[in-house]
Amino acid sequence: MTVAPSASQELEETPVRNGMLRYALSKAGGALLSISMVIVATFFLFRLLPGDPVRALAQGRNMTPEQLDLERHRLGLDKSLPEQFFQFVKQTVQFDLGTSYEYKRPVLDLIGERIGSTLLLTGTALVIAVTLGIWQGARAGWKPGSRFDRFSTAISLVLWSVPTFWLGLLLLMVFAAGVGPIPGVFPTRGIESVDAPDGFGYVLDVAKHMVLPCLTMVAVVYAQYLLVMRSSVLDEVGQDYVTTARAKGLKDDDVRRKHAVPNALLPTVTLVFMRIGFVVGGAVTVEAIFSWPGLGQLFYEAIRVPDFTLMQGTFLLITVSVIVMNTLADVVYHLLDPRVRSA
């Protein structure tokens, strides 16, 4: 009989895998609950905004009340709020985000067009900010109070306290417009030049457009990675296992690399995953300042109308990606830490 050994093997393995699966499922269930609450909130939140989309879309043209009513009927705004709400929920669960009032095109298409440039900008900024923050934070936390620590922590905190729009405008003034002897080397707006060449030249052109918005985003956010990493490395520095590794003859740099940093990365992983969620949303402010044709700008324009369907669509996408990434962060944490894994 060959059944018996395999059965006993399964017995040993299933509890752990079951536990993991059950954990992941319960997290997914929680995420679904959050998402459904977000759907409800999205609808009512934006109806609170002042402004009448129909009048805004008329853009000051003289329209008769009949024409306005007709437009209202076309957008479905003449129905009662509960009716509109159920319509919205029904569409949303079918992954139909409706048609934009302003663009008169499906919201999903609009998002599809913009999401690439947003991911390019915020993704690049995230990678740079995380790398910079973790690297500096690990070094700063390893030797707290050292010159490197004081210097890098101070600079990152100053940059963190600076308002994004102010830093963005300042960079625009200095490096795009040019001040005094400094020539304006970078473009002021957009993702590509009108006369952009093809091939590698195009890549270079986009990269040039990305420098300032990317710099702004990195400067403003990298402090949080630095601080989280710094404090968690600081927690590890005094640990006995660090002393033990030193006493075994491990070089200081290796103690940091092999022991302190991997253990300190755990809390940072959560933070990074949460931030990946926000990457999708982009940075509304940065995109608005640099006229970056991404989701953030789309959202910003939608608020000004207010274009309800477009706002709902982009907002839902942003919140859902944050929730999904949060859930993933929990699950990944579970996989990385053996203590949590078996608990």
Binding site: Q239, D240, T244, K248, G249, P338
Partner: peptide, 25 residues
């Protein structure tokens, strides 16, 4: 550095709290 490393093989350390002395991962 080199001589200290050789010394580490001769003299070893055991600390009070075994939970802290072991890297949990």
């Amino acid at each position: 550095a080199r001589e200290l490393k050789a010394y580490r093989r001769r003299v070893q350390l055991v600390l009070q709290d075994p939970t802290g002395s072991l890297n949990p991962r």
